[in-house]
Amino acid sequence: MELKEYNACVKEWADALFRFACKCTGNEEDARDVVQNSFEVLWQKKGDVAPDKAKPFLFQVAYRQSIDNYRKQGRMLYKEQMDDNRTVKPGQTDLKRVLERALTKLDEQARALVLLKDYEGYSYEEIAQITGLSDSQVKVYLHRARKILKDYLVSVENII
């Protein structure tokens, strides 16, 4: 990967990586650090990373850092922040708000899988490469996460 291609990666993937990191860590400050660090690692490894593999590489680094970061800080902090600040924003639809809350019900790995699937449209195989899981594990974890999200949506709908 050349310098020009690296800069193109920054322009193309920085926003997506930031959104992913933001949802994974639940904290914008941490997400910025994750993005900064991910691109720094990409720059250091640019000789080994082909341009078409740059995006999965970035998400792989960001995924690992987000998981580590989340595990260090603890789940409660993420939940509190998500519930208090990030979930209720003007202009957001009810469904979106409920989904944001539903995400907090997932563990960090399941949340990352759903984000990689829905935000980036990765296949099971690609997610497996990013996360280091097997294809079948990804499928099982994702389905389990979907059921949790669906159950939460249905329960909220029933309450409302």
Partner: peptide
Amino acid sequence: DAYMSTRLVPDTNMVFEHKDSLLK
């Protein structure tokens, strides 16, 4: 429909504002 509703949609308003610091 409930399963389909669980699909997350990225918030495109959320952007990384310090891209210049990443560019070489």
